[in-house]
Write a protein that binds this DNA or RNA. Structure first.
Length: 235
DNA sequence: GCGACAG
DNA sequence: ATCTTGTCGC
């Protein structure tokens, strides 16, 4: 998959926040995606030691949810972890993994927020806009917004709203009984109802949707064995 | 000033 | 994200 060129990552915190505010205007919150979705991607990033990041992208086919491709990439850490600015830390690794991907997923699930963000531009939206690809934010915990707790049954969900203007910015979705809910939000080129439906369709008995569950598991295993990673050692 | 805070 | 054991519940 082709990547945009000339992106600068050596930004100050102020500059990074301004970039988010600007790019957030480009987010499309409508279903601008193929009629039939056959491939769903899932991206997860792990930190490896004090100075490296490992990104794993898994592509799964619908409706069987069978794994069709895995791509990995290692990059040096170029930005600290700051709540709200996660994209500037993880995007270099995710983009590199996306670059070596052979298949072209119809939609990409991200282990992060999309519109459910202080400036309405979390990692899921950032990667969606940069690649002009439908994307969904699917985080394990809350960053921003108010919501009531959904009932304890798979499929139950509540709205996540912006306390400033009461806009709906996401959904809190119970994907498995007795498990903490997922925070689903629009990344890019998709509507919230469609995003919620996709996440639910991709969960086969687990809390996380299959593409993300697999990516997370593969990343965890890759980080386990070697103490230091090289691009070649990943394969 | 104080708390909250994706991974 | 990472550092970390056993343990309780679905």
């Amino acid at each position: 998959m082709r990547l945009p060129k000339g992106i600068r990552w050596d930004l100050s915190v102020d500059e990074a926040m301004r970039v988010q505010t600007e790019l957030s205007k480009k987010v499309i919150e409508e279903d601008y995606l193929p009629d039939t979705i056959r491939l769903v991607g899932g991206a997860d990033v792990h930190q490896v030691g004090p100075e490296q990041m490992l990104a794993v992208v898994c592509v799964v086919s619908l409706p069987a949810l069978t794994l069709v491709e895995v791509s990995k990439a290692v990059t040096d850490i170029v930005f600290p972890y700051i709540p709200g600015l996660l994209a500037f830390r993880e995007l270099p690794a995710v983009l590199k993994a996306m670059e070596s991907l052979k298949s072209d997923p119809d939609v990409l699930l991200c282990d992060a927020h999309g519109r459910a963000h202080p400036r309405r531009f979390g990692l899921a939206s950032h990667i969606g806009v940069l690649l002009d690809k439908p994307s969904i934010g699917c985080a394990k915990s809350r960053l921003y917004g108010h919501a009531r707790e959904p009932e304890d049954a798979p499929g139950e969900w509540t709205e996540l709203t912006d306390p400033r203007d009461h806009t709906v910015i996401g959904a809190v979705v119970r994907t498995q009984k007795s498990s903490p809910p997922l925070y689903v939000s629009v990344g890019h080129r998709i509507s919230l109802p469609t995003a919620v439906k996709f996440v639910q369709d991709c969960c086969k008995g687990h809390r996380l949707p299959e593409p993300l569950r697999l990516a997370h598991e593969i990343a965890r295993q890759s980080v386990r064995a070697p103490r230091r990673l090289t691009q070649e050692r990943l394969f």
